[in-house]
Amino acid sequence: MSEFFHMGGYAFYVWTAYGMAFAILLINVVVPIVRRQRLLRDLRRMKSRKTP
């Protein structure tokens, strides 16, 4: 199994590449979710202020 992670000596390059890919894909997913939370919170706060 450790041989697999060794990647024929290129472990650093391959795993950094896959790590970066995972990070960037994750960021692309997290950003809209964070946007959703913030937006809903603001809208609820605005609504609660409008209806006493």
Partner: peptide, 28 residues
């Protein structure tokens, strides 16, 4: 993946743009 993330972003952008319309209140 692009389609999923695009739809997610676009959905909340649309909701943000249309926040004054009543369907947004219904959704809330």
């Amino acid at each position: 993946f692009y389609a999923v993330v695009l739809l997610m972003r676009a959905r909340w952008e649309v909701l943000d743009q249309e926040q004054r319309s009543n369907w947004v209140d219904d959704y809330l």
